[in-house]
Write a protein that binds this DNA or RNA. Structure first.
Lengths: 211, 211
DNA sequence: CAATATTGGACAGTGCCGGTACCCAATGTC
DNA sequence: GACATTGGGTACCGGCACTGTCCAATATTG
């Protein structure tokens, strides 16, 4: 076990913790004080660390996500739904907000499961924007919907067709790990866009990108 | 204070907590045991709640974000940078990952501050995708960059020009609150796209959206 | 073969973080 | 004047992701 921990770069105590929490399957025990761990355990450990680290999943959510990866793959569409159930922050939106989300989605012609947690998340997000008093939301949301449609198409097109297991792994890990990637890119693009709009033509000393 | 708490729908103890933490400015005291709170305090409280609730900012990050809103607005471009500093999860990426992020951004021709936390976030996210063994990342990232560019343009174009204070508020709140909105939309779009790709033509009983 | 080190496992403890409960003197209300 | 309420301070709570400690069984070594 110490070798596993060393190879994965994770403290031994943490490995024990993951074993206890059911994130990491136990190794094959060779005796009462020894167990065999393979390369798959190292990879699993790496996956756990990125899910709870970069993906900022809770340990419970990571367990659920890993169960989806381990489980059978009925169909990719099913897996996406299950993954969203497992991963999503369990947001509870009021019925009216949920209704608003449904209308938006239906108006867009999207075919979406009624019980998807993403609907509640959308409703809560819309509600939050209202409460914050953000102006011009209608147009903004419209633009975002168009962008999201591209994202969905990109993601689904990128699902590998080599094997069902690969596909499931890609869907679960990709859904989680591309989120921070997307948010980071958005922020960087915001900086660039604001530079072009506000600083580009007349370069003001002191407000250009810092060295 | 109890009236303020009631109007904002927040427990009194929590209001005290926000006062203590410097998120909510103190009311004008009318005596030793009484203070006057105005509509602005109710709005502020609502803003705090969406930032820490839906926006899932820590109290410390929310304080920093609110300080940006309260502070002077040198220029929108500056505000975006400062807001990213305040909001961002303080990710520490290794120099090599950071270098990789820089190359990606430079290759895209984006003008970005060298010390932006978003660069570290991007580096960490790329690193995480590698560690998870996601295939076909190059093409995927390329597509995401193109989408992010649209997002940045949308966000910056939506900044209101009515007053600097409005603009700052929009930038800070929008950066935070549109993130959950975007992620929810992405998930919904994924569901729709996967439905179209995998379930659309030949409808399989039992795998269509649940009632 | 005996002395020592290491292992896996169980369990309690730690540090942080949002938030809550309690207490108090000063004040408002009846 | 009796009594409730207020703001403010402090202590405390529960959840979470670990981490430290202990222990008996086993591996390693002289």
């Amino acid at each position: 076990m110490s070798e596993l921990a060393r190879r994965a770069g994770v403290p031994v105590g943490t490995v024990k913790y993951y074993l206890r929490e059911g994130l990491l399957p136990a190794g094959t025990p060779t005796s009462a004080t020894q167990a065999q761990y393979g390369e798959e355990h190292v990879e699993r450990l790496a996956l756990i660390r990125v899910l709870v680290g970069t993906g900022s999943l809770s340990v419970a959510a990571a367990r659920a996500a890993l169960q989806v990866i381990d489980g059978p793959a009925p169909s990719i569409h099913e897996v996406i739904g299950t993954a969203h159930q497992a991963i999503g922050p369990q947001v509870t939106a009021e019925p009216e907000a949920l209704e608003r989300a449904r209308e938006l989605v239906d108006g867009q012609g999207w075919r979406v499961a009624c019980d998807s947690p993403a609907l509640a998340q959308l409703g809560a997000a819309l509600e939050a924007c209202d409460r914050a008093g953000l102006p011009g939301m209608e147009h903004l949301v419209e633009s975002y919907v168009a962008v999201a449609e591209q994202l969905g198409a990109i993601d689904v097109a990128a699902v590998p067709t080599t094997s069902p297991a690969d596909a499931v792994r890609f869907v679960v890990a990709g859904t989680v790990l591309l989120e921070p990637l997307l948010l980071a890119l958005r922020r960087l693009a915001q900086q660039d866009a604001s530079f072009r709009r506000f600083e580009g033509p007349a370069v003001t000393p002191g407000s250009r990108p810092r060295p």
